[in-house]
Design a protein around this nucleic acid. Structure first.
Lengths: 148, 148
DNA sequence: ACTTGAAGCTATAGTGACTATAGGTTGTAG
DNA sequence: CTACAACCTATAGTCACTATAGCTTCAAGT
């Protein structure tokens, strides 16, 4: 049996990137801002990640995909590291973020309606248009979008 | 009749900010990046804006509120400055932006569903939760959100 | 053993669209 | 004439990366 020189779960940064779908540069960035702990290094000073890093980075990736801010993720990670952790706080972060997402959706729907209106004004051919889109943008008074 | 020292439509930057709802710093920024032309200056080197500036800044504000990128606005302004302008191009920019907004809405709705699911897992009391939100984030396999 | 080339390293600057700060000057009302 | 708000420039900071330059290390092939 050959000596186990490289454990299956000890991987360089490129492999970690491939496994988690997070870019190499982004991984180094997460380390820099303290989201991902500093890993061991090879003799030649290259990063070597273990199973714990893979899991932690997967957590971060999933949370980022869901739109959580890095600051929120930092808190969530801290909570998950705490043994008898405060579930309330995690719930609050999650609920707060859900509210933000819903607000953003509402705002975008309002924009969508206004943009659709503007876009159709000009679709009737060159005759009516000199140019209706430009005019719609210039003339706020005629705007049905009142969020602002 | 008193001499018309200050025309009603020649205003300092603060008044322009108030009229358009754009912050003073942002106005200077727009000038810096070439969206808003450099205005006349007072003897003491302070900016003095005329009616044209008010209108142009209102256009920019409206377009930004609608989520157009500064780069798109630059193009739209160029088009609106052209006499026999290319309405097609304005229409394309507008339609492209509408598509972006719709894509963004779709993505956010997917996030919303997943977040709502995660948030409810934990709402049944402390018993079931150690902590379900953290677990949901850690365990991507159980995730119903498949955009990523 | 040696070469080559991909993958890794650090440090720094750039992105978009502002926002904030420091430290100075001007305009105007009392 | 004195306060003081409003203005000025220049520079740095925000967020979450992304890109670049100029190196070193690793692993596979000859």
């Amino acid at each position: 049996m050959r000596p186990v020189k490289v454990l299956e779960h000890v991987v360089p940064i490129g492999a970690l990137a491939e496994r988690t779908g997070v870019k190499v540069e982004t991984i180094r960035y997460y380390e820099q801002v303290g989201l991902l702990p500093e890993p061991e290094r090879s003799e030649g000073n290259q990063r070597r990640y273990g199973r714990a890093h893979v899991e932690r980075l997967a957590f971060i990736k999933h949370a980022r995909d869901l739109g959580f801010a890095v600051e929120s993720i930092r808190t969530l990670l801290r909570l998950s590291d705490t043994p008898g952790m405060a579930c309330d706080e995690a719930h609050a972060i999650s609920a707060g973020h859900l509210k933000e997402v819903r607000d953003k959706i509402a705002r975008l729907r309002s924009l969508e309606a206004e943009l659709a209106r503007i876009a159709t004004v000009c679709s009737g051919g060159v005759a009516a248009c000199d140019c209706a889109i430009i005019e719609a943008l210039a003339d706020h008074a005629r705007c049905e979008h009142h969020n602002h």
